[in-house]
């Protein structure tokens, strides 16, 4: 199972990186979502896999899974929603205000 999880993380990362290198806002947002999945899975993986165990304290437990990465990932999921929402709004604003949905300004800001 470790192999599958690692492969999934790798695949999500690769897909995310490919999409954030695109030229339009929507694929970039999709790519960031994929990267968020990958990051969350990776943080979760830092607690190692322990299927069958729980983070709920109860009598007669054989052991527990690592609760700390779970707590970190939980908040990360919510924050990534906030980030995605802001990006979506920026993309809409760029499209409506600027007339296209390109991520590149086409303008050299230094000039």
């Amino acid at each position: 199972m470790e192999l599958l999880l690692a492969a999934a993380i790798g695949l999500l990362t690769a897909g995310g990186i490919y999409l954030i290198l695109r030229l339009r806002t929507f694929p970039v947002i999709l790519g960031l979502s994929l990267l968020s999945y990958a990051c969350n899975l990776f943080i979760f993986a830092a607690g190692r896999l322990a299927p069958g165990l729980t983070p709920i304290i109860h009598k007669g437990a054989e052991g527990y899974t690592d609760p700390l990465p779970q707590a970190l990932v939980l908040t990360a999921i919510v924050i990534s929603f906030g980030m995605t929402a802001v990006l979506v709004m920026l993309a809409i604003g760029g499209h409506l205000g600027g007339g296209d949905d390109k991520v590149d300004t086409g303008v050299d800001l230094n000039k």
Binding site: L5, I9, G10, T13, L21, A46, L49
Partner: peptide, 21 residues
């Protein structure tokens, strides 16, 4: 872009696997 993405993805997978085992 595919090459870059593939290389980074491979790295991420390798790191995750190294961590998990």
């Amino acid at each position: 872009d595919g090459l870059i993405a593939g290389a980074v993805g491979l790295g991420a997978a390798a790191l995750a696997y190294a961590l998990l085992v």
